[in-house]
């Protein structure tokens, strides 16, 4: 999605500033105060997946009246109806309501992006790079994203935590975490 309404660079620094006082002056973009559009889209995607899955399903044997597909049709219908209603409600909202909603929905996208990136990187690289490095990187990414600008210390704290977890889990609980690059293979 392209969220143009909030320029992350213009965000106030993370600290106890009195929030959203200058809000009403900024012009409303299409997405402002319409967070439900995302939920509506998710529901329609869910419905599409369910319908595609049901149509292509290789049904084994006789499942009775509803069969393996019946419930899928029902959930697809529910998701479609709710998704459409949410979308309509979001599009019909008055500018005043949208302004107050937008104030509540204000989001620091840079922070969210950094945290999400850390988690995705961990998920993608854990097997290759290994637990120790990826957990450290992810910890630092999340801590930095949440407003802690001391990256070196974030990395250090993350490393200690990752190492302790590796020792506890491999040593005591017999849970092997991948060593990856540090494995010396």
């Amino acid at each position: 999605m392209s969220h143009t309404r909030l320029d992350p660079a213009a965000e106030p620094p993370p600290a106890g500033r009195p929030p959203e006082t200058e809000e009403p002056t900024s012009p409303l973009s299409f997405w402002d105060g319409r967070g439900e559009l995302v939920i509506g889209a998710i529901l329609l995607v869910v419905a599409t997946v369910l319908v595609t899955g049901n149509l292509g399903m290789n049904v084994i044997g006789d499942g009775g009246l509803l069969g393996p597909q019946g419930f899928g049709w029902f959930v697809a219908a529910l998701a479609t109806v709710v998704g459409v209603l949410l979308t309509v409600a979001a599009l019909r909202r008055s500018p005043e309501q949208r302004r107050s909603m937008a104030a509540r929905e204000r989001t620091n996208w840079r922070a969210v992006g950094l945290v999400m990136l850390g988690i995705i990187a961990f998920s993608a690289l854990i097997d290759i790079v290994g637990w120790l490095i990826m957990a450290t990187v992810m910890f630092a990414a999340v801590a930095t994203g949440l407003g802690n600008r001391n990256v070196v210390r974030n990395l250090a704290v993350g490393f200690v935590m990752a190492a302790v977890i590796q020792i506890v889990f491999s040593g005591m609980l017999d849970l092997n975490l991948p060593s990856g690059l540090l494995g010396g293979r």
């Binding site: 965000e11 106030p12 620094p13 993370p14 600290a15 106890g16 500033r17 009195p18 929030p19 959203e20 204000r106 989001t107 620091n108 996208w109 922070a111 969210v112 950094l114 945290v115 999400m116 999340v142 994203g145 949440l146 407003g147």
Partner: peptide
Amino acid sequence: VLHSAGRVGHRGA
């Protein structure tokens, strides 16, 4: 975690 990341800078003290 993502939710509180999104609220960084918007929390009152």
